[in-house]
């Protein structure tokens, strides 16, 4: 099986983001950037499949600025074979990302694409489903377990009511949820080794795609503030406040 994993470089999940004064976006200068946490889980799953002898080649793709190379190197240090960066300074929406990924997939012909269910910056939760729709492939979103047999994959999905299992014919697109696995820490020797693995950079222009934005961001504002609360000293005081002040019980 040949696997392709799409990863996004995002503001680290520990950073408390601040909205810019001019409301054009959030402050990203001098902010720590990392691999989207869901994408780490996607890479980990693919590496485990490879270690289990189920994968011939594991390719990492990222679309974005030059520094995404670092993010790809992290995935290579986790165990992937080679990386592809589609370099662009543009802010691309999920539909555009999916169209670029289609071009790569047409060239590489993977049997499986694994990606995060959502990027923690824009929180769209769209790209995997868009890609599956564009390719006409089955989709297994919010996966918490994968099992392969006979050119199919059984995907256990985290849905609102509990868990659901689907069986998908390959090739398919999988998007991963938090409980699929726990990504490994990369060890220094592997980081060194990853520096020698192939990483190809393609300019976005080479695809000749029309990716003009369909959705434009007019402004980005801070969320409404909550008023300050009070400390209560005892359970009795709490119950009294909830009954007589907030009137919610």
């Amino acid at each position: 099986m040949k696997i392709l994993v799409a990863i996004k470089r995002v503001v680290d999940y520990n950073v408390k983001v601040r909205v810019k004064k001019d409301e054009s976006g959030v402050e990203t200068a001098n902010v720590k950037m990392s691999m989207n946490p869901f994408d780490e889980i996607a890479v980990e799953e693919a590496v485990r499949l490879q270690e289990a002898g189920q994968t011939e080649e594991l390719i990492i793709v990222s679309i974005g600025v030059k520094q995404c190379q670092e993010t790809i190197r992290t995935a290579l240090a986790m165990g992937a074979d080679r990386g592809i960066l589609v370099e662009t300074e543009d802010q691309l929406e999920p539909l555009a990302i999916a169209k670029i990924l289609r071009e790569i997939i047409n060239k590489e012909s993977p049997d499986l694409v694994i990606m995060g269910k959502q990027a923690i910056d824009d929180d769209s939760n769209q790209t995997g489903q868009l890609l599956a729709g564009i390719l006409g492939w089955p989709q297994g979103t919010f996966a918490s377990k994968l099992e392969f047999s006979d050119q199919r994959v059984a995907v256990t999905r985290e849905v609102d009511g509990g868990l659901e299992t689907l069986s998908l014919a390959l090739p398919a697109v999988i998007t991963v949820d938090l409980r699929l696995n726990e990504p490994r820490y990369v060890k220094l020797p592997n980081i060194m080794k990853a520096k020698k693995k192939p990483l190809e950079t393609i300019g976005l222009g080479e695809f000749g795609l029309d990716l003009s934005p369909r959705v434009t961001t007019l402004k980005v504002a801070p969320p409404p503030e909550r008023g300050g609360g009070v400390r209560v000293e005892s359970v009795e005081e709490l119950v009294d406040k909830l009954k007589n002040e907030a009137k919610v019980i």
Binding site: A98, D123, N125, Q129, R157, E158, R214, V215
Partner: peptide, 23 residues
């Protein structure tokens, strides 16, 4: 914007070539 809607709407978007707006 539940797991049902999030799973479905982008796939429709791909088929209609429309950029969905989430949540």
């Amino acid at each position: 914007a539940s797991t049902f809607g999030k799973n479905l709407i982008p796939r429709v978007g791909a088929m209609l070539d429309v950029s969905p707006i989430s949540d």
